[in-house]
Design a protein around this nucleic acid. Sequence first.
DNA 1: CCCCCGAAAGTTACCGGTAACACCGGACAG
DNA 2: CTGTCCGGTGTTACCGGTAACTTTCGGGGG
Lengths: 335, 335
Amino acid sequence: MPRRSSGRVTLQHIAERVGVTKITVSRALREPHLVSAALRLRIESAIDELGYIPNHSAGALASGRSHSVALLIPSLSNAVFSEIQRGIEEGLGQAGYQVLIGHTGYSILEEERLIDTYLSYGVEALILPGTRHTDHARRLLARARVPVVETLELTETPLDINVGLDQHEAGKAMTQAFLDRGHRKIGFLGARMDYRAQLRMAGWEAAMRQAGLSAERCLTTPHPSSYRLGGEMLASMLERWPDLEGIFCGNDDLAAGALFECQRRRLNVPDQLALAGFNGLDITEATAPPLATVVTPRRGIGDTIARRLLARLQGAPLQSTSENLGFRIRRGGSL
Amino acid sequence: MPRRSSGRVTLQHIAERVGVTKITVSRALREPHLVSAALRLRIESAIDELGYIPNHSAGALASGRSHSVALLIPSLSNAVFSEIQRGIEEGLGQAGYQVLIGHTGYSILEEERLIDTYLSYGVEALILPGTRHTDHARRLLARARVPVVETLELTETPLDINVGLDQHEAGKAMTQAFLDRGHRKIGFLGARMDYRAQLRMAGWEAAMRQAGLSAERCLTTPHPSSYRLGGEMLASMLERWPDLEGIFCGNDDLAAGALFECQRRRLNVPDQLALAGFNGLDITEATAPPLATVVTPRRGIGDTIARRLLARLQGAPLQSTSENLGFRIRRGGSL
DNA sequence: CCCCCGAAAGTTACCGGTAACACCGGACAG
DNA sequence: CTGTCCGGTGTTACCGGTAACTTTCGGGGG
């Protein structure tokens, strides 16, 4: 007599119905070639007559394998991550892994909490946004002996697999594009200011310094970026530095918002003010004029992560490496 | 001697270290008030010395409770869902539930697959986008005897909890707003054309018919919507129906894309062409002019789902009900 | 005709927790 | 002084699968 009459159909029920033991049913599901064809058919029909649904917890506990992987992303509302994710899910999904998604809200403390949660779910790998983690998170990861992917930015000291692009270099390159067009008074507008945003800004600053120009025209906020914020911050910047010739925005949302504000003010872009964003989201090609931006290889990042992670999961040895997938500057019409 | 030397720290290890049995350690974690304070402290320090991470599968298997809930959303890149999700995660997270996210890609077949997957994970509730499901999915849900939330649109025959808004009514109301402004040749532009998009379009059609006007100026595509697509489709529509006075777009992305195309063509919005979107995303307030839109109560939907689901999880009886959270028309400046 | 082999199915133990109940000793009421 | 209650801890069995090894049986080679 069961302690809790869960009502749920188990392997045992199927086994009784068919007249075999449960291990045979288990085999029929996982290694069909080890079960005779006739029996397999009877098992299959019993399974869908009774409506059997496997118990993932029991399987994971017994086998030590969860067939799942955790993917942490900073924010669900940021379109940047959804493309990376698509590549990861397709690649890992085909290999039989379930991808569990968590979002950190750009906080490494929350990341730490999620790492703990997902390790207790027994995930077989973790994919983390960024290369900065709390000490405790690093300890957890080290003890777990599980493949780890750090993505988006690059580091010289990866925990394991690192796939991304050089955000600092990208910031410099876009700034150089402004310089090449003859602009000199180039500002930087940033929101959220997570580590990657800081790297981009540092790239802008470095390029300006190298060109012997002032890097003072800079406005940032810790608030999450949005279209509206882009417009509001552009207004502040123009008030403070009316001589601005161009503004490099830390991401496409801000750039688009800034562009809309220029339209409201009847400020011609790029003649009176040049603008650029970062990431190469769909909107940059749709606005009038199209926005200059740094096109990041998001889909490629996702695919690469899936490929390299699968290799590790199938036994390739740990050998900390960084893979730089680069970026491309697109001039659009706003620069 | 363990079969697999997993190396992982278990309750047993903690128990040995402290000199008690594992059930006491388990209690110290789940029901601390049942364990004496002194012992509790020793257990806690052993836990973080040894770096114990609970095994969720084992706990779920033994207790029959997974403390997790599945949330299926159509698309991760659609900002509409991220706000709903935030409300759900906050509400359920506080109550100790982990929210597992899956995306269906707007396909009820994929939804069916995910329902199966998450039921095997033992989720204690499912939150589904929409009210249409495959027959097999309905059977799975019925057998699972788990609370189910259907959201976004409304139905007269909810499986269990239904929270959303009347998409058809909203489509009609926005069309009426066009009519109130004196427009007569009002077109509809739609993409993806999932069930909700169809309902909105049907609302437009109904309102036009009721006003004795033609509902022929309609262009739709099964492709996913995007800013670019909005622009391209606007171009097609203007070519086909040069007399258009206004266009109701099935969502904000399309409307924004259409607006950008108007800017490129130096078509004044709203004087030469009125535009409206659907959902009330951030971008509608940022463009020049701001876009008319149907503001949907996304955050409220998320909060309501969390509240009502918690009630059910804490024992409230099943009583199929629909909750209509309404909508609001915002005229913006494009209408 | 015997032996060995391999395919097909079964036995046993175990994964790492938790439920339910038993146990123990001291405080306190009668 | 004894019975009862209760806080604190232990015992036992079990959740629903899977690993590893064993058994059974039919057929082909020597």
